[in-house]
Design a binder for these strands. Structure first.
Length: 921
DNA sequence: ACCGCCGGGTGCC
DNA sequence: ACCGCCGGGTGCC
């Protein structure tokens, strides 16, 4: 194999990485061909003015090498890894030393300076372009103050002597790099007279690839995945449908590397923890900025390392990999491989998937057509003593669905032993579990078992499969629940979820970590190949992501088919938007409130303080939205929007209480800006921002006296946090209702539809959804007046009451209520309300996905009727504007997970734009 | 920086 | 003592 020491044409692609690579045409076995390549940092911008022509590189020879030092590391944030290249840049205008030579990392961020004595010698050479100098940090990349750097001098042969002489004058002798500095045991000397850094020779003959070649390699990796996709028997979801029933992320290969090409970590990333190179001040400033940006998310790690002693600076790690071709063995594990011989046509997992998620017909069909019974495949998963049991973990709310699913649909088809691992009576004997075909449990049971792992049978069984239902519940990598899940021993891992990505790609990464999908479980690899390209909108990034997703998911949408047959034959679902006009009286109140709010908001906008008055803005919006529903909803306690500066502490506190109530009752599904998850024990700060209590307390503890609000940098104090009092938010409503009930445009529209429906077909059941539970209370009155039987489900109800409500609604008998009042938030995943075939969405939600999810409570497996959804929207109101924002969000979601994840400032701007849209500014 | 270097304090054992 | 030695302050260019 000839060596090709092509050098990268770009000066800035300095990072050295070592790759072994597949050469499937080769007569060599897959593992013994390695390519040495210079890796292009995928996000690196070529900002260097030193970019050279190819010609320069071709004629360049190595003059010699020199060990120098990079100093002043503590003053700069640029990080570098061992064996990574650095760039030298003259800094003639440095006020301390006109000979200064800056050292930059692969991203062009300054790492430090060349120590001044050496810089004095180098300055002339660089200025006169007598030689090109490349640096590689051989070790000590983590050092806090100085680090070594191996410099190699390159240039035209005729300049060699002048350079050597010049360096000699300053007391530096160029030479070959000492043996001790070499990595590996390559033939450095033989190569040293040709172009290309020679001191990084890998174990085997190396070919250096250009950055272009590398990129091609990356793309190939993913293209191959795409090809696998063609063998998929499930048609990939066409278009961007929101009607995903189950997105199944699967791991078919036992935690082995992704099989197309085996990718093996060659060097483990060292710990991410490092010493501070920043002053405390800098660090605090940086941390504050981080809080609301993506970088914060990135700093979280699954392993929780360093979470207690938070590193002062996150070091971007570059990790080296080798990968070799998929071996024959791996071929067998290719996902969705269905080209196997007839007698074992179907992958065990296919059968399992169909047994679990397909319709019984699909199972039966397979059985008939292929002559393979599901029971054989599932329960006789292997020889005696081998793993055979599948563990299903789900939220409590869907536990009963699983039981139903097995009892009604699967058991009649196949014989399966099923054990529900739940409740105080659950077995302690792992043998009992491992004798089952399927064990079903909940996240909470698992999590509580995890507390005493050594006792837990769940943690003793070696599972064949672990299936996570509603798998996005593990998206917080630090939650005990997640840890508990990750601690399970499993050969294959499945994740069922309708929403694999809720906040960011990070969510997906959590899932991929569970699947042990190498190499993407490595944070750095994931980040480099997927997250960064996608978030920066880099070409090809999305394609890779999509290729990856396609290849690890089985998508079953309402249109998915297995061999031409629909997986799920759901009845039609239609969504109508019914516009309504406010009555003159309502309109009057609305307009005056709107003008008042507009005035306040436009003042904030012009002052540029809108985001620090977010709660006020929200208050305006919520009140307008409430007015669209019913004037009673607008709490009289909130009559004044503006916060006056000279109010007494008690006043301020009262206002904050009002604000937090607003945020919580607004249904805006506010997220905590710290954990980026939905609010848990919400508290409001004095600057009126709402966070999870644990989150903000942590911030305060960490920052001590200097704690600042992550959103507006207002000062924070523990004793100034206001919690939401647990009093009944509806009490004022109830009073009003008792005193003098009145209708509203929307209630009128709803009641008209309901009465009309009852007249046509009294057996049809409806769900009435609102984000405002108080609105549900008002509707109750109207329902009673017209003699409707109804039940109610909202977040304030205990689990017991919820189950009661659901069960009574699902009952088919005549006494069963025909209407379910549902608060949007309570209508989360798993809730099964298939008794209803009509949905009335009383007010638009911020998040269209939340609406969709709600509709799917009745439009799901078990629904026999056509489902009609009616969304009420008040014309010329904040609601119409919300629809605009919704469609914007939908577009974003359709563009696959919102590329260009945008900076925090962009996000802020977007939020401001949203607000302006909403109030017609 | 668990260094080197600087410069002030100090001075038998 | 125009030294040595000690120990604190300090730290890129």
């Amino acid at each position: 194999m000839s060596r090709n020491f092509m050098r990268s044409s770009s000066w800035n692609f300095l990072q050295l990485a070592r790759y072994g690579r597949t050469a499937n045409h080769s007569q060599f076995s897959s593992s013994n061909i390695f390519f040495h390549l210079e890796e292009d940092d995928l996000s690196g911008e070529d900002t260097s003015s030193l970019a050279d022509s190819q010609e320069d590189f071709d004629s360049a020879i190595l003059f010699g090498m020199l060990r120098g030092n990079v100093v002043g590391l503590r003053y700069y944030s640029g990080v570098v890894n061992n064996n990574e290249m650095v760039a030298l840049q003259r800094e003639p205008n440095n006020q301390y030393d006109r000979n200064a030579v800056k050292v930059n990392n692969v991203n062009g961020e300054q790492v430090g300076h060349i120590k001044k004595e050496l810089a004095a010698a180098l300055a002339h050479i660089l200025d006169q372009k007598m030689a090109k100098i490349e640096g590689v940090v051989p070790y000590g990349a983590q050092n806090a103050f100085t680090m070594p750097v191996n410099l190699s001098f390159w240039g035209r042969a005729e300049n060699k002597q002048a350079v050597l002489d010049h360096m000699m004058k300053y007391g530096f002798r160029l030479g070959p790099i000492p043996n001790s500095l070499q990595l590996g045991h390559g033939s450095a000397k033989s190569k040293s007279e040709r172009a290309g850094p020679s001191y990084r020779a890998p174990i085997l003959p190396a070919v250096q690839m250009t950055t272009e070649q590398l990129k091609t390699e990356f793309d190939k990796l993913f293209e191959d995945l795409k090809e696998d996709d063609k063998t998929q028997e499930l048609e990939p979801a066409e278009g961007k449908t929101l009607s995903v029933i189950a997105l199944i992320l699967t791991n078919f290969y036992d935690g082995r590397p992704f099989p197309t090409k085996k990718i093996k970590k060659q060097e483990l990333a060292e710990s991410d923890v490092l010493k501070s190179n920043m002053s405390q001040k800098q660090f605090k400033a940086a941390k504050k900025t981080e809080l609301s940006t993506d970088s914060r998310k990135e700093s979280e790690t699954l392993s929780q390392e360093a979470s207690s002693s938070r590193p002062k600076r996150q070091k971007a790690r570059k990790t080296k990999y080798t990968y070799s071709s998929a071996s024959e063995e791996d071929e067998a594990w290719l996902p969705r491989k269905v080209k196997a011989p007839a007698e074992c046509t179907l992958h065990d997992d296919d059968l399992f998937a169909n047994a679990l998620f397909g319709l019984p017909t699909a199972v039966r069909k397979k059985k008939n057509k292929k002559g393979v019974t599901v029971s054989q495949s599932i329960s006789k998963a292997g020889p005696e003593g081998q793993r055979r049991t599948t563990l299903i973990i789900c939220p409590l709310s869907v536990l009963s669905n699983w039981i139903d699913q097995f009892e009604q649909h699967i058991k009649p088809e196949v014989h399966l032993n099923i054990y529900i691992y739940y409740g105080p009576e659950r077995t302690k004997d792992p043998k009992v579990l491992s004798d089952q075909d399927v064990v079903v449990t909940t996240y909470s049971v698992l999590s509580s078992d995890y507390g005493s792992r050594s006792e837990s049978p769940l943690h003793k069984v070696k599972w064949l499969r672990v299936v996570l239902d509603e798998g996005h519940t593990i998206r917080n990598p630090n939650a005990q629940q997640t840890q508990a899940v990750l601690s399970l021993e499993a050969q294959r891992r499945w994740i069922l979820t309708g929403t694999p990505i809720q906040n960011s790609l990070k969510d997906l990464w959590s899932l991929i970590c569970f699947l042990k999908l190498k190499p993407f479980t490595d944070r750095e690899w994931w980040h480099r190949t997927i997250q960064r390209p996608v978030t920066t909108g880099e070409d090809g990034g999305l394609c890779r992501l999509q290729a990856l997703i396609k290849n690890i998911t089985l998508r079953r949408t309402k249109t998915s088919k297995i061999r031409g047959r629909p997986v799920l034959d759901l009845p039609e679902r239609k969504v109508f938007i019914q516009h309504v006009e406010l009555s003159e009286e309502e309109r009057q109140i609305y307009e005056s409130l709107k003008n008042e709010g507009k005035a306040v908001i436009s003042r904030y906008v012009s002052e540029g303080t809108i985001l620090s008055h977010y709660a006020d803005v929200l208050a305006v919006l919520v009140r307008l939205r409430q007015l669209c529903c019913h004037p009673f909803l607008v709490s009289s306690a909130l009559s004044s929007i503006t916060t006056t500066a000279d109010s007494t502490p008690g006043d301020v506190r009262e206002k904050l209480v009002q604000k937090i109530k607003l945020v919580l009752s607004s249904g805006s599904d506010e997220e905590c800006a710290i954990c980026l998850d939905s609010l848990n024990m919400p508290v409001i700060t004095y600057c009126a921002h709402v966070f999870c209590k644990p989150c903000i307390c942590q911030v305060i503890q960490h920052e001590k006296q200097e704690a600042k609000c992550p959103l507006c940098r207002g000062s924070l104090r523990l004793d100034q946090l206001v919690e939401c009092p647990q009093e009944d938010l509806d009490s004022s409503i109830n009073k009003k209702l008792e005193q003098n009930w009145m209708c509203s445009t929307k209630i009128n529209a709803l009641m008209h539809a309901l009465v009309d429906q009852r007249r046509k077909d009294a057996t049809v059941k409806s769900i009435v959804v609102s984000q405002f539970t108080s609105f549900l209370s008002v509707i109750e009155v109207a329902l009673r007046e017209s003699g409707f039987m109804f039940t109610r489900l909202d977040g304030s109800m205990t689990q017991k009451k919820r189950t009661e409500a659901i069960q009574s609604f699902q009952r088919p008998d005549a006494q069963s209520p025909t209407i379910m009042l549902l608060s949007l938030k309570a209508g989360g995943v798993g809730l099964n309300l298939t008794a209803a075939s009509r949905v009335f969405l009383m007010d638009p939600a911020w998040n269209p996905a939340a609406e969709e999810q709600c509709f799917d409570r009745c439009h799901r497996l078990g629904q026999t009727k056509k489902v009609i959804v009616t969304k009420f929207v008040v014309r010329n109101s904040v609601e119409e504007n919300m629809l605009k924002i919704q469609s914007k969000k939908r577009e974003l979601a359709a563009g696959a997970f919102g590329k260009k994840k945008s900076s925090s400032s962009q996000l802020k701007q977007a939020r401001i734009e949203d607000i302006r849209t909403l109030v017609d500014l």
